[in-house]
Simulated assay, not measured.
Amino acid sequence: MNPNIKKSVAALLVIAILGGMTACKKTTEPQEPERLNPSHWVNTLEPPLRASPYQVEVPEENRQKLAEAKAANADSTLWIEIPNTTINQVVVQTTDNEFYYRRNTQKVYDFAGCLYADFECDFGDGTKDDLPRNTIIYGHNLGNPMGITDDPNDVMFAQLFHFQDIEFAKANPYVYVSTENEDFVYQIFAVSYTEDKAKPVSYIHPNYNNEEYMKLINDMRDRSLYDYNVEVTTKDKILTLSTCTYKYGTYSVNNKQRFVVFAKLVTDKQFAETADLTENPDPKQPTFS
């Protein structure tokens, strides 16, 4: 073969090899990522929290019962129901906490009284955003014998003493509350004995600054009969159910003692069929002056 032809063939072979290498290199280099339209960015975010499989719904008839009660007495403000108790009734409210102390919902004298919301609680239009930070409801425990021994089978808020039974507490983690415009589910996070004016923060106020609020929540957890696995933060709104107790004396010896159930408003549709709790081995005890 002509030497010149050999040189030409060799040159062509070199060019072919180098061209192949260049082509391979181009196909393996990382490509510039596609710039997504901002309207597509939402697809890269985590999806919103889905409701848990087990759901809790406030009975539809509760708001209707409240409407009927309000037609009979304009002071009718809330309807409260605690499953597996006899607490399924109207809550009234007026301009002080004395009027309904020994009156029923028809404003007639009744030693057992009725359930009433603290006069400082402002419910606005009765929507979630209008609820006070702390919704406080009072009710009597007459005791059996009267003024001496707590009886969970007695009337009004004596029913709260069912929560002294750990099995009952596990099986009943929620409280239902309704206004004229909305239904609410509250999840219990503490069941506590306390003074009527607890320290460092009293539970009988509807609004707190953040520091006071967390002091209250942590104090009631410390006092609780059980350690509930329920997160409560300054973003949450709570429900306080308060009644007399005779655990630390009788009515005549010490009428400053209280039994209180605390619950937080559920807003994320995350429900559990039973309460996740353990017994508190050393609950903080009330001190009476």
Rank of each mutant, 00 (worst) to 15 (best):
S224D: 08
D276N: 14
Q159Y: 08
N144Q: 08
T28W: 13
F161D: 03
T179N: 04
D276S: 12
P48A: 10
T94R: 10
V201T: 14
N209Q: 11
Y101P: 00
T233A: 06
D150P: 05
Y226A: 03
Y138A: 04
S224E: 08
I5E: 04
Q285W: 00
I17E: 02
R133N: 09
R133T: 11
T234K: 14
P152M: 08
P83D: 10
P30T: 11
V9F: 13
E180N: 12
D282H: 13
V253H: 11
V266H: 00
K237E: 00
G139D: 09
A71F: 00
C244F: 05
V253F: 09
P173R: 00
I80P: 01
V185H: 02
G20F: 12
L160Q: 04
S242F: 05
P281V: 07
C244A: 12
M156W: 03
S242Q: 12
A112T: 07
Y174A: 04
V14T: 13
Y116V: 04
N153H: 11
Q164A: 09
N84W: 01
T86Q: 14
Y246I: 05
N2L: 01
S39D: 11
R103M: 10
I136C: 05
Q159I: 05
Y208D: 09
N153W: 05
A117Y: 01
P281A: 06
Y203D: 05
Y226C: 02
M214G: 11
T95H: 13
F271C: 05
N209D: 15
A117C: 11
P206S: 14
G19T: 07
E60R: 12
T243R: 04
E279C: 04
K128C: 09
P33D: 10
T94C: 15
S76V: 03
P173Y: 05
P3E: 06
D236N: 14
F99S: 11
G126N: 07
E182T: 13
P59A: 10
C244E: 05
T44D: 12
N172H: 14
N43G: 06
P281M: 08
V56K: 08
K237N: 02
D125R: 15
A263V: 05
P206G: 07
G143R: 04
T85E: 02
N172V: 05
G147S: 08
E68N: 14
F168T: 01
P30Y: 11
L265E: 04
D125A: 15
F163N: 03
A158F: 05
A11H: 00
I166E: 13
P206L: 07
N280G: 06
L265M: 08
V92Q: 03
I137N: 04
T95A: 15
L13G: 10
Y100C: 02
T27E: 15
E34F: 10
I80F: 07
K25A: 13
K6F: 12
R50S: 15
S76N: 09
N255K: 12
V58F: 09
N84L: 01
V92C: 09
F161W: 02
P145W: 03
N218Q: 10
T27V: 15
I188E: 04
P132M: 06
I15S: 12
L45F: 14
H205D: 13
V91W: 01
S224K: 06
F184S: 06
F111I: 15
A198E: 14
N97E: 07
E32Q: 15
Q270Y: 13
D183A: 10
L18S: 12
H162T: 01
W41N: 06
H40F: 12
K65I: 04
P132I: 06
P59I: 03
V232E: 01
G113V: 06
Q257C: 09
